[in-house]
Computed example of a mutant assay.
Amino acid sequence: MPWIDAIAADDVEEEDVIRWDHDDKTYVIIRSPDDEFFCTAGLCTHEHVHLSDGMVMDHEIECPRHNGIFDYRTGKALRAPACEHLSTYETKKEGDRIFVNVP
């Protein structure tokens, strides 16, 4: 899988999320409180709501519609109604750019 130049690191603040669309798919890139970057599928697995409108705290993202929670590091669904895990994608920072390894 190729590494894709997705965003500038400064595009997303600490403990925040940004939507990233690539090849007709929606993803989110999240910056952790540890200044690490993570990428997951951009839609909640419960009702396909955009997670970019969700709240990020610590290592979790909350769906803005029904408050399902996911661990964005692993994609694991942590609170109902979300019960299906999110897909996650490898990220890396090179200089001031964030790259994502997507299929």
Rank of each mutant, 00 (worst) to 15 (best):
5 D>K: 15
100 V>I: 11
25 K>H: 14
36 E>K: 10
41 A>T: 13
32 S>V: 09
29 I>W: 03
103 P>M: 13
43 L>V: 01
74 T>R: 07
44 C>H: 04
37 F>A: 11
103 P>A: 09
73 R>Y: 02
5 D>E: 15
20 W>L: 04
21 D>C: 04
83 C>E: 08
54 G>R: 02
21 D>M: 06
16 D>K: 07
81 P>R: 11
70 F>H: 05
93 K>C: 12
94 E>N: 10
53 D>E: 14
63 C>L: 08
78 L>W: 07
36 E>W: 00
49 V>F: 08
40 T>R: 02
40 T>Q: 04
64 P>E: 05
13 E>Q: 04
93 K>M: 14
42 G>P: 03
29 I>E: 02
103 P>Q: 08
89 Y>V: 05
75 G>H: 07
18 I>F: 00
88 T>G: 10
17 V>G: 02
22 H>M: 02
73 R>Q: 14
69 I>K: 15
46 H>N: 14
74 T>E: 07
58 D>A: 14
51 L>V: 06
56 V>C: 06
71 D>E: 13
74 T>F: 05
56 V>N: 04
38 F>H: 15
69 I>Y: 12
103 P>K: 08
90 E>W: 06
99 F>D: 07
83 C>V: 09
85 H>F: 07
51 L>Q: 10
56 V>E: 04
69 I>P: 01
51 L>N: 06
100 V>Q: 05
82 A>T: 14
29 I>M: 02
68 G>H: 06
90 E>S: 14
81 P>L: 03
21 D>T: 13
87 S>E: 14
17 V>C: 02
54 G>W: 01
35 D>M: 10
22 H>T: 03
32 S>K: 09
101 N>D: 12
52 S>W: 06
62 E>I: 01
100 V>K: 05
39 C>G: 10
92 K>L: 12
46 H>S: 10
78 L>I: 05
3 W>L: 06
55 M>R: 13
15 E>I: 00
43 L>Q: 10
78 L>H: 06
76 K>S: 11
81 P>T: 06
30 I>T: 08
6 A>D: 09
31 R>M: 08
87 S>W: 02
30 I>P: 01
